[in-house]
């Protein structure tokens, strides 16, 4: 039990990922490993390449250079070069993405139940009753009133939409989840609720997570480790508390000292 994780291979291994948009740099030479059950935060100001990096490692954008190795249930696969069917299968069974804008991650004209059930049905579940039961179960988990199961997300508040996105992604029990600014645009009390919910689910499901945010408080709460990005490069990385409590790079120091304390 003691050595439970340390002998495992990393879940995700990112090797020197670069992405160029023409001559402009999206991100440059980013490297890290993500272990099972670990949460990695990527912080930096807008335009620092956070989202580009996230899209590259989550299989949504092809990097210009570098490699992403994911150790799936069926063995290690090269996410940049794997055949598309395999890549997409892994993406919809073992991974999930929660988008900043719920409109990107939800089907707004499909009911909450249908949104949650989509992945189950995509993975071959052909039993309405079971789809429905699991959708109800997940609504409860993400603290949405079960009576809203047949309502469409456009009738939901922003916080509910984000929670619905989370349910939609987690229903297939993925191992790795990507989040792009999941809490921006939510007011503070709603943010806290969402973060706490995420924390609970991460522990309960032993999820690994990559979370992009410009909010350092969010990373303090959710991420074990941080990468600080600026101009497409990782200027600093390490344990979250170490980076935030003893920042080394001038930019990180500036970032940390700019946090408003209520």
């Amino acid at each position: 039990m003691c050595m439970k994780n340390s002998d495992d291979i990393p879940l995700l291994k990112v090797e020197s990922i670069s992405k160029y948009y023409g001559r402009r740099i999206g991100c440059l030479g980013i490297e890290f490993e993500l272990w099972p059950g670990e949460a990695l935060g990527i912080v930096g100001e807008s335009g620092s390449g956070k989202t580009t990096l996230l899209n590259c490692i989550s299989g949504q954008l092809e990097p210009s250079e570098g490699a992403v190795w994911y150790s799936s249930n069926g063995g290690v696969i090269d996410m940049c070069n794997a055949p598309e069917p395999q890549r997409r299968l892994v993406m919809r069974t073992e991974m999930g993405t929660v988008y900043q804008n719920p409109r990107d991650g939800l089907r707004m004209h499909v009911s909450a139940g249908g949104n949650i059930g989509e992945r189950l049905m995509a993975n071959g579940l052909r039993h309405y009753g079971q789809v429905r039961r699991r959708a109800l179960n997940w609504l409860e988990k993400v603290e949405i009133d079960q009576e809203r199961i047949d309502d469409t997300p456009d009738t939901f508040s922003g916080g509910m939409q984000q929670r619905l996105q989370i349910a939609r992604n987690l229903v297939t029990r993925p191992r790795l989840i990507f989040m792009d600014e999941p809490t921006s645009g939510l007011d503070v009390s709603v943010q806290a609720r969402l973060l706490d919910l995420l924390r609970g689910l991460v522990t309960e499901l032993d999820l690994s997570m990559v979370i992009v945010t410009h909010d350092l408080a969010v990373t303090r709460l959710l991420a074990h480790r941080l990468i600080v990005m600026r101009g497409g490069k990782a200027v600093e990385s390490g344990l979250t508390d170490q980076v935030l409590d003893d920042p080394q790079h001038p930019y990180t120091q500036l970032l940390v000292s700019s946090i408003l304390q209520p």
């Binding site: 003691c2 490993e33 074990h224 480790r225 344990l239």
Partner: peptide, 18 residues
Amino acid sequence: HNGDVLNMAGADPHMILH
């Protein structure tokens, strides 16, 4: 740690967490 001798200074974050 666990029968090994590790250096906290410069250990990778994963190991520090462990």
